[in-house]
Each structure stands twice: as C-alpha cells, then as structure tokens.
C-alpha cells in the first residue's frame, strides 16, 4: 500500500499521484485476469473517489482513505473479472454467441480444454468449444448420464489415479500416431497421382488432391495434437490437463487414421464411407473410454484411502 507520508494540506498533486497509482495497479491487475475494465466503469470509480475527497484537504492520506474503501486494486480487479465471466459476454468480445452458437477465440489453454471436455458436475453434454464456433462434448456429463461415474466421484479430476496412470495415458495417442505413421509409410507409395480427399454424403468422392496434400492433412489432424499433448505432459501440467490432452489427441488421431483409411479404401475400389463413420465413432468412444477409466481409477484410489482408514477422518484441501 501507499506510504502515508506527512503531506502538507492542500497539496493536490500528491493525492492525484496516489489515485493514479491505484488506477494503474487496477488496470495491471485486470490485465492479469485477462480482462479490462470498461472506461465507463473506471470513470465512475474515479468520480466516486473524487466525491469522497470533495470535503477533504486532498492530501495523499485523504486519497488513501478514499481508495481504501474500494479495497485493494487487486481485489477490485478480481471482482470485475468475476463479473465479466459471469455474464454471457467474455473479455473484449473474444467469447460470446453469434446466431445462438457459442464462440471462443481466446488462445486455448490445456486447463480450459480439460474443464470443457471433463466436467461431471455440469449436466450439459454439449458445451462451448475451447476454440472456434460451436459445441464440444462434455464427456463428464456423458459419463454421469450413463451412470459410469457420479458428479462428485473425484475431488479433483484425475489427480487421485496416481502419476503413473496419468503419464501412461499419453501412450494411447502416441501409439495411435505411430500406427498412423506406419500405415502411411507402408501405403503411401501405392497411392495414385490424384487421391480423393473429400466425400459426399452419398459416399462418392467429391474432392481430390495430391497424395502429399492428403498426407499433410492427415498429419495435421493426427500428429500435431499428439505433439501438443506430449508438450502438456512434459511441461508437468496439472494431471487434469494432462489426461484431457491425452484423451482429446487420441480421438483426433483415431479420426486421422480413419480419414487416411477412407482414402485407401476408395482408391482401392471400395464404395461407401464406413471407414469415416468408424473414425467418427472412435473420435468419441476412445477419449470417453480413456477419461472414464482414469476417473474410475481415481475414485477407487480415493475409496481405498478413506474406507481403509479411520471412519471419521475427513480430507481437506
């Protein structure tokens, strides 16, 4: 806080300096919450302080007293940030709705991704995407709906399962990516100069490209997410974020395998798009299975901890 140095009465520049410092800290703290306080709100806060100072000598001490009423700038910024996230519109319009569809164009984080794809306390199965327009599946709600888990089974998702289980989840998408790489390596030279890259609902290809373009697309969908998931693991993020990253990348790699398999299938004279449908199913089922498995292991670990120990013991966090 600001020093209450003995200031001669009427020395207004000092009061102004104290107030300016407060508002600078407020703006900095708001930025730290990824938000900014609207100019109207800032003007109103200043007007409030000015009014409080009206009958005083405008010393730095008076300004400090008036500002104390608002709390620390950090606490005030927190309150504004809470208010901003409570409303439908996020900071600076980066989050919101267009034509009834949710959108979010903030840089995605592994924590936010985790909270979207696994929130068993939220009964909504479709939740806003972490990045882009539309919805994504809240596998936690799906698991509660199918009675595989209860909303409060785990105190903190995926943390009780143990670090070995958490680390092992990365093996699933890595294995899928290796399988994808092996499949591409084994078949890529057999592809003709032009391959189908898009299929209509009737199962007939309606878009074509070079094999290289097809392989690059499959790599972007199937390998890049696994590298990102590996980075989340290697950077020692929270188990929640790590398991969610494993699960989401596993789904995307399975989808990439199916897209490539679809290309091979069509090139070799197959008709229909069943490989794609199998991929779409795997895109949902595999992450779901992984997340539910880890969550249930976490629950089992919590139960072992509580049910074997003294029955009156609680766990605080």
């Amino acid at each position: 806080m600001t020093d209450r140095a003995p200031i001669p009465p009427g020395d207004t520049p000092d009061a102004a300096a104290v107030i300016d410092e407060y508002f600078d800290r407020l703006r900095t703290a708001a930025a730290g919450h990824g938000t900014s306080i609207a100019p109207d709100d800032l003007a109103e806060l200043r007007a409030h302080v000015d009014e409080r100072l009206h009958a005083t000598a405008h010393t730095a001490a008076d300004a400090t007293d008036a500002l104390a009423e608002l709390g620390t700038p950090e606490a005030l910024a927190q309150a504004f940030a809470d208010d901003a996230t409570a409303g439908p519109q996020g900071p600076d319009g980066l989050v919101g709705r267009v034509l009834g569809m949710p959108y979010d164009v903030r840089p995605p984080t592994s924590d936010r991704l985790a909270r979207r794809v696994w929130d068993p306390t939220n009964p909504k199965i479709l939740v806003p995407k972490v990045l882009g327009l539309g919805w994504t599946v809240n596998f936690g709600a799906l698991a509660v709906r199918t009675r595989l888990v209860r909303p409060d089974d785990e105190d903190d998702p995926f943390t009780s399962a143990g670090s070995r289980v958490v680390a092992a989840t990365l093996a699933a998408p890595v294995a899928a990516a290796v399988a994808l790489g092996a499949l591409v390596a084994a078949t890529w030279t057999t592809l003709p100069a032009t391959v189908p890259t898009h299929w209509g609902l009737n199962g007939r290809p309606d878009g074509f490209g070079s094999p290289a373009a097809a392989v690059i697309a499959v790599g972007v969908i199937g390998v890049v997410p696994v590298l990102l998931a590996a980075a989340v693991h290697l950077r020692g993020r929270h188990p929640f974020a790590r398991v969610a990253a494993s699960a989401v990348s596993l789904g995307l790699t399975a989808l990439a395998v199916s897209i490539y398999a679809q290309t091979l299938f069509t090139v070799r004279g197959g008709s229909g798009v069943w490989p794609t449908w199998a991929g779409v199913a795997a895109f949902v089922v595999l992450p779901f299975g992984l997340l539910v498995t880890v969550s249930r292991r976490g629950r089992a670990a919590e139960q072992r901890r509580d049910l074997s120990s003294s029955p009156s013991k609680g766990t605080a966090r």
């Binding site: 306390t121 909303p151 409060d152 509580d306 609680g314 605080a316």
Partner: peptide, 17 residues
C-alpha cells in the same frame, strides 16, 4: 455439485468416502 466443489476447494467443507 459445482457449489460443493467450490466450497471444498475453499476449505469450508471436507469430503470422505
């Protein structure tokens, strides 16, 4: 459930199986 989770995280309640 979100409320219980928040109360637990802020240390006002504890949970045990």
């Amino acid at each position: 459930y979100p409320l219980l989770s928040r109360l637990r995280k802020s240390g006002l309640i504890t949970s045990a199986w």
